[in-house]
Simulated scan of single mutants.
Amino acid sequence: MNATELSLAVSTEAKRLGFLDCKIAPPHLSAEHDEKLRAWLAQGYEGEMTFFHKHGTARNHADYVLPQAQSVIMVALPYWTEGFDLTHSILADSHAAYVSRYAVGRDYHKVLRSRLKQLAQYLSTLAPEGIHRPVVDSAPVSEVSFAVQAGLGWRGKHTLLLQKNTGSFYFLGALLTTVKLEPTEAVNGHCGQCSRCIQACPTGAIVGPHMVDARRCISYLTIELPSIIPEEFRTAIGNRIYGCDDCQLVCPFNRFTPESSEADFQVRHNLTQMSLLDLLAWTADDFKERMAGSPIYRIGFHKWLSNILIALGNSAPSAAIAAAVAPFCQHELALVSEAAQWTWQRHQTPA
């Protein structure tokens, strides 16, 4: 098979495996990508995600992860599982807990990696000499940028990948390979003058088109930041305890979002129907048992607890909440006690 035939065969197999789409990128991103990454880091927008400095622009070059890489196979897998009206109603209920919809099911890393391994096995039957490496947020690879270069979609103003007919609620995976495949063509963006995502961000993290200051982003604050959420952002957090979907929820292209049929992405442990007080009652053992196999597990029980306490500070003033929070004010970890004290103070004048 030549490179074009191999690309077509891989794409066909990827769709048979359940991927929404599959495109091929060359192993190196353009110099423009390197320049943009350097500029982003120069602004300090990465916050405490020091791994960005460790690898720098090397993440824009696939051979940094897989020596002699010749192609990057990019795939997308949808994860959305509910109606938008329900999502908006939960966000509007200050007593409800909101978890970003990508995290209400099983850990997507394992699901995509397993599927990518199957794709690699298939490619090996066509090109036995090849070496392959699946990547799902597991190596320094600029997955969105490679997806853009491959034509899997374009980068929206919120910096996420967008597809015209399917929106943005899908996971990305990459299969690096030493096999030479024919690259697919990039596509034009269709955001135009729309700026709904920028306007919708609760914390003003989208500081300009295609530019996010992670230090202000709720996903960063509730997941990547190991310490307590800074006070200046706590009110804007609302009831979001793990991640945020606001910039995607307002995007016109997500009107076309396909619902996922993947069993692993369906809601586990009623996470879309839990109140903040329900979750506050979980013990460390409850968290360990129920969040095993979930992407939430990696932030740990105490960060989870701290996020919940802060969200409760944004609920309508209530003596019941004050009473529930009070025992945590003396917690041995400042991550928890400071969050509890802040929330307890905000519930001292119940309606």
Rank of each mutant, 00 (worst) to 15 (best):
V75S: 00
Q348N: 06
V141K: 07
R196A: 14
L176N: 10
A58R: 11
E46I: 08
V111S: 07
R216G: 10
T184E: 01
V72M: 09
A96N: 01
L29Y: 02
K23N: 05
L335H: 13
C217Q: 00
V325Y: 01
T272G: 10
R155L: 14
R298H: 06
R234Q: 03
A76S: 06
Q345R: 14
Q345N: 04
S227N: 14
F19W: 15
K164F: 13
P183Q: 01
P230S: 06
K110R: 10
V250H: 08
Y122M: 11
L112I: 13
L152I: 14
R346N: 04
H347W: 00
P226I: 10
I321Y: 00
R38E: 14
A39W: 05
N254V: 01
V72A: 15
E48W: 05
H109G: 13
Q330T: 10
R255P: 05
N254W: 01
Y64K: 07
L172W: 06
S100D: 15
T203S: 06
A324T: 06
R346M: 04
R346G: 01
L221A: 03
E143T: 04
L221W: 00
M211A: 11
V148G: 01
E231G: 03
S142K: 12
G83H: 05
C194G: 01
A236H: 14
G156S: 05
L112P: 14
I299Y: 06
D85R: 15
E35G: 06
R133H: 15
K15Y: 13
W154T: 07
S71I: 06
C194R: 08
A236W: 12
Y122E: 09
S168R: 00
N254Y: 10
H33F: 09
C217N: 01
M49Y: 04
F287P: 00
I198W: 09
M1K: 14
F287W: 04
D34W: 03
F52Y: 13
W282C: 10
S145H: 10
Q163Y: 06
T257A: 05
Y297D: 08
W342S: 01
S89Y: 12
A127V: 12
F233A: 04
Y98T: 03
S138G: 11
H210E: 13
T125C: 14
T4Y: 12
R216I: 09
T203Y: 11
L86E: 14
T235G: 02
S227V: 15
P67W: 11
G130P: 06
V65N: 10
E129L: 14
F171A: 04
S315V: 03
Y220P: 03
R196M: 12
Q193F: 13
S71N: 05
E129M: 11
C194E: 07
S94Q: 08
R133A: 12
A200G: 08
H210Q: 11
H88T: 15
L86F: 15
T87D: 06
C217R: 01
W342I: 01
S124R: 12
F253I: 07
E259L: 08
P327A: 02
Q248M: 14
A96S: 13
I310A: 05
A340I: 04
I228C: 08
